[in-house]
Design a binder for these strands. Structure first.
Lengths: 224, 224
DNA sequence: AGTAAAACTGTACGGTGTAAAGTACAATGC
DNA sequence: GCATTGTACTTTACACCGTACAGTTTTACT
């Protein structure tokens, strides 16, 4: 008879989810670098090839990681008007992409979306339709909002690391190498705006998002 | 005395520019994959390490490639109002990113911009300032426009390859795997809009760009 | 002709994703 | 109770990657 107090000798096996969680955590720590199969496996107390028992190949693993990011995004709930809902999910999505900067670089090569991604898209479209958009209008709105959100994330990622006052040092250093006479407007903007003490590029996000939402509201009726 | 009719036996040496042009051409052909140093060198009739005589490391080469893409973008000329200028450069930029899809994925990791990039940014900011934007307003406008353009490029890249009617086949196939009862709005949009014969996602670009430009015009006065 | 710099090569190292085959163990059917 | 099957994982190996380091050649300039 088997001993009930004796669980499987292999203490507990891997699973898609456990692998994905570790992969996301490692990518976050590595400031945007997706871990190699060997490093990921190592963290999980296993050899690299063990991962291939749970994922067909690395691409499938990356798909799963992106889907996990989408799962973190706050979905619109039915009780909000579409403007508020889109503002909230925009902010939430941007925060997720800031927490997981590696995801932005992955988006443009992912082709088959996971369940959380589909759920996200479906809910957003549903929210827009409920808000009075036609299907065509909802497609416009969706495309516009997501383009803005992803693009903003790209630009935020490309900034010199914003951990601390490091940013200012890096930005100043960069600007020193840019001749002011050759690029007058750029240096003016840097000196008079972007390098001013309280400036935070992140604040631009809400401004743009509001402008787009405002524009969508204005054009909503005309999209049939 | 050296013979003037006898040009260098090494027919002609590499140069940054020649390497970059070959690299861009190869990346374009490879549908978005940046070539490895060995493959690139091979195309140039040289061994991999020869590249390191012209570039400190691969990152510097990638920087150069991105700068070449910016060099292809049509710059605003002084004789256009800012709206027209921004529409033109937006379209031009998107086309460049479509020609060179690999550039989009590179953007979020590039940190030091090349000359063409700086020239581009400077000219755009100059155009906005000339159009009546304050520095703060120009910063908002610039951030918004570029976010939208980059983000749109991401989404366009992520589409199943749009070479031909292949697109429809791929999209239909994808939609077959999405249960309609679980994602009703998504499937509705696909069926009634995105999969209709004449639909081209690229057409969304101008709609969003116009909406943003319109919004910028409306808010311009309020940004001091 | 001699020298010094520039352009390029050979070799090597540690890293990558993953194919193929092998091993250890649990569960199952008889 | 024992053979069979399936699951989870390991070992080994391969082709490819970026690049450090130390040559070697080719060119340019006295």
């Amino acid at each position: 008879m088997t001993e009930p107090a004796d669980p499987p000798v292999r203490r507990d096996p891997l699973s898609r989810e456990k692998v994905l969680l570790a992969a996301v955590a490692m990518a976050d720590e590595a400031k945007g670098e997706v871990p190699s199969t060997r490093k990921l496996a190592n963290r999980l107390g296993v050899r690299a090839m063990a991962l291939y028992h749970h994922f067909k190949n690395k691409d499938e693993l990356l798909d799963g990681m992106v889907d996990l990011v989408f799962a973190e995004v706050e979905l619109p709930t039915g009780d909000l008007d579409w403007q508020t809902a889109m503002r909230r999910r925009g902010a939430s999505m941007r925060e997720a992409l800031k927490r997981h900067p590696w995801a932005v670089g992955l988006m443009d090569s992912r082709v088959d979306p996971g369940g959380a991604t589909l759920r996200h898209h479906d809910t957003v479209i549903g929210c827009l339709l409920a808000g009075g958009f036609t299907i065509v209008g909802a497609a416009h709105a969706f495309s516009m909002l997501d383009s803005y959100i992803y693009g903003f994330a790209i630009q935020e990622n490309a900034l010199p690391i914003s951990d601390e006052g490091d940013f200012e040092a890096a930005a100043v250093g960069m600007m020193e190498t840019v001749p002011a006479d050759e690029f007058p407007h750029l240096t003016a903007m840097a000196a008079e705006h972007a390098l001013k003490p309280g400036y935070d590029y992140g604040d631009e996000f809400a401004i743009g998002l509001d402008l787009i939402i405002d524009g969508l509201d204005r054009h909503r009726e005309s999209w049939r």
